[in-house]
Design a protein around this nucleic acid. Structure first.
Lengths: 247, 247
DNA sequence: CGCTATGTTGAATAAGATCAAAGGCGGTGG
DNA sequence: CCACCGCCTTTGATCTTATTCAACATAGCG
């Protein structure tokens, strides 16, 4: 449905022609600098649905830029509890967790057939040293990830189930829109359990809240297909202006 | 109590003499490289208890390395809910959130009188480009922050109140130990409400759980003073081996 | 076409929140 | 130096929300 029309016209990696260059690492780079980046990003990798791009404990060697597809990252506690820490879509950079200890600390798994550009980290460090804009942008990407996680902490630490779900749907909506897809209609690539894990809720709660949203005319849900009918209503819920007791 | 004996013998910043150099940015640098870092870190700044180092919306100009003291960072949602995103102690780098948008996205406030080294970011970028070890270490610091936040997400998303508190106490213990203080006895610089905000709990719950831990002989609490009596007991709680129903 | 995954819904339960009251500590100013 | 005030903390009683347990529905896959 929302998958972009698949047409890689050349096998060689070419950031300069990539339709994600405005979202991905090349942002703000000159053509000359993009060429240096292209030398770096030599290979692509396909990950089938259900397979993992890397696992916790794997040696860290590369970052990955999502070209196509959808992934989740999860961390596992010593006693086996799993927490989804994020969902990743085209143009996003994954693997940043591995830099700190040279070992990945989370699992990253494709939720649909996915293709990533492989960015060998050692070479990225070298190129970043020589290309100020790239260095700067790379730092911004890492910082943005920190800020994003602050937002998730706010959500997990101080929001109710309905607020979390509403925020989640609006966030997806906005990210789809930024990629040229519909912001009102999209397919959830993840299961209710995965949404629940990410939001700190049980899958039954996710299902119930989605049903309630649908009943209140905020969204339409049909399995994984979601249509946002009343985005302002969702926004009102996120900002606490419509607590459950008022409806 | 646990404050280090205060003796700054020279006013000039000198990473090479700083007792935090094994925790802070200079980690792994040669003496020559540390000197380059010292040129960069020209000034210090004092922040009195209750004052803020920076606020959300402030223009981002510098990172700060905590030399002495204790701070918290908080994010605020549009409707005024506040979430503590972290507590910072000596040797830790704060302000990383500002890089992404050149504007700080959280407030960082001193919980006791604090002194930080000011690291002008533009100059850090230049020096990092020229000093591979520093660049590498800086990237690791950012990545470590991302990994830390994954841990907090796991805690907020999938742990019970007792598990959260136990994990929190053990984390503080370990950080104090790394700084040469006692790992079994320390002073909480933050209020119960701040602990609660960080852990996604209400202050009453924090208080109750601490009382229960004390009753079970895991810790001794006297206001802000905490003594860890049975760290293995706390670890057992964190790893879910001692759910409330079993005690 | 049947099976397993995933999703929905209901009823009972439990964990933590909320409301309320009282005690203690520290800082300030007389 | 002491008394007072405000903030922080503790503890109890009650209530709400989300979880748990369970049954059933549906869909996609082999």
């Amino acid at each position: 449905m929302n998958a972009p029309s698949f047409s890689i016209s050349h096998l060689k990696v070419a950031c300069s022609n990539c339709n994600l260059r405005e979202l991905c690492l090349p942002v703000g780079l000159s053509l000359a600098d993009i060429e240096k980046l292209e030398e770096l990003v030599a290979t692509r990798k396909r990950v089938k649905r259900g397979e993992s791009l890397f696992r916790a404990g794997d040696r860290f060697e590369s970052l990955y830029a999502v070209r196509l597809g959808f992934l989740k990252s999860t961390v596992m506690s010593s006693d086996g509890r799993e927490q989804v820490t994020g969902f990743h879509m085209a143009g996003e950079l994954v693997g940043l967790d591995g830099i700190s200890s040279e070992t990945h600390s989370c699992d990253t798994v494709a939720l649909e057939d996915t293709e990533v550009c492989v960015i060998p980290y050692e070479r990225l460090e070298e190129v970043a040293a020589a290309v100020p804009m790239l260095r700067n942008h790379f730092h911004k990407v890492m910082s943005r990830e920190i800020v994003r996680e602050h937002g998730v902490m706010l959500l997990l630490g101080s929001m109710h189930a309905e607020e979390r779900l509403a925020a989640f749907l609006l966030n997806l909506s906005q990210r789809f829109e930024a990629r040229g897809y519909s912001r009102t209609e999209f397919v959830l690539r993840m299961t209710r359990a995965e949404i629940g894990s990410f939001l700190g809720l049980k899958l039954e709660t996710v299902s119930r809240v989605l049903s309630r949203f649908a009943q209140d005319g905020l969204i339409e849900v049909n399995q994984k297909h979601v249509r946002i009918v009343n985005p302002d209503g969702l926004r009102a819920i996120v900002s606490g202006q419509a607590p459950a007791c008022e409806r």
